[in-house]
Design a protein around this nucleic acid. Structure first.
Lengths: 219, 219
DNA sequence: GGACACTTGTGAACCCGTGCACAAAGTTGC
DNA sequence: GCAACTTTGTGCACGGGTTCACAAGTGTCC
């Protein structure tokens, strides 16, 4: 269930504030969902609540962690150490949630050897070896679009069974491999779509107008 | 509709390969969706196809662009110029799709004045002024979680009506403001969840094992 | 010009996630 | 121990999105 991480984050916040038990109503509010939905989600894991009282924060945290697989460490390889790969490698949120950035790989030989986030960047040729030696099961693709399919194929062939794809490309993987996609431009385009509907493009600019304003403000 | 950018990307790929017309079946395949779904989506825009033939690639591209609002430029402010903000500012995919990074803002006075992606980083105090002067309607939040709500409130108060939030926090905005969220850790956690189900945690490691392997390979 | 092959556009069934509402269960106070 | 209150867990209905299947329209070939 895709909302479990959300609940976990809300619970962690409550735990830090010293809250011992929480009702579905309260927890739902801090996670931004409907309370009935939350109860239905939690009941799917088992009956971990107490009627008349609510849920014990620490206990529920542990149950969700176990369900998600957070009680184990997962090794991750990041392929493509451009701007985005860089940011991902340095992103602190991964390590604290059981994800270990085990390897960084780039196709550019000039990048190989460079140190990023305390790890040496390896050349793409070593990809398969690294996956096997480090027992990596999750791959993050931050390459240009044209390389994405090839990279995914190689990851899958080497044994990776979960891929998070940031490249703006449609990639196909065989059954049994999980593929999730995050497309930054698409997210903005969806916003722009709604924006246009809202105020009849009152805030949209021509390229010339935008450039002019930028000139005036930034000099 | 959230799939229009997807179709647009597929169409652009076809256009580059010199394809003039395409059937719903083919286009659906390259976008990774069902052909009936695609036809229904496109029929929502109007009857732009020809029975017995298919859709004219260039014409359809233009129609979708117009629908999404890509024929206009949108000014964007990025708040929080850490690793992620840096990567977003340098990400080439925005400019080519009608999004103009108009301003970069950070709360750290030491960052102000620094040049990132050809733009001077401004201090957070200037946020409201920049939004008005540059007529910014879209905000990207790449701050730490604890600052996210405050930043969003200020963006909305200054007139921003669409927000893309990368901070791992639940933020509330008033009605009429569009808010989309991208949570990198959550994406990985969902993958880990499925991963755990698949192979009974065969590939999961304890933190010790992972550290040991890392030592052997990188050390 | 007519038969045939192809493709769109859409009505209708279906599926799944969501939210309401309530019974079951537990707690508190007396 | 009993009544009143609180909260969970879930049956059920609703609605939006997805898919099937097919009629209607278009081009092609002879």
């Amino acid at each position: 269930m895709a909302r479990l991480p959300l609940y976990l984050r809300a619970l962690t916040g409550l735990a830090e504030r010293g809250v011992a038990t929480v009702s579905s109503e309260e927890l739902a509010a801090s996670a931004g969902v409907n309370s009935a939905k939350l109860r239905k989600d939690l009941s799917y894991l088992g009956s971990y609540g107490t009627r008349g009282v609510g849920y014990e924060v620490d206990f529920l945290r542990h149950q969700i962690s176990r369900e998600i697989g957070l009680t184990q460490d997962w090794s991750v390889v990041i392929v493509g150490i451009g701007n985005l790969g860089h940011a991902l490698a340095n992103y602190g949120g991964f390590a604290s949630r059981g994800f270990r950035i085990a390897a960084l790989v780039d196709a550019d030989p000039k990048r190989a050897g460079e140190e990023v986030a305390g790890l040496q960047v390896r050349h793409a040729d070593e990809l398969e070896d690294l996956i096997q030696q480090l027992r990596i099961s999750i791959g993050v693709v931050a390459t240009p679009a044209r390389a994405a399919q090839t990279v995914c194929d190689r990851l899958v062939a080497a044994g990776v069974t979960s891929i998070l794809n940031f490249a703006p490309a449609i990639v196909q993987v065989r059954d049994g491999v999980d593929l999730r996609k995050v497309d930054l431009s698409t997210e903005l385009q969806i916003l722009a779509y709604h924006e246009q509907r809202k105020n009849g493009a009152a805030l949209a600019l021509t390229a010339e107008q935008a450039a002019e304003l930028a000139e005036a403000v930034n000099g």
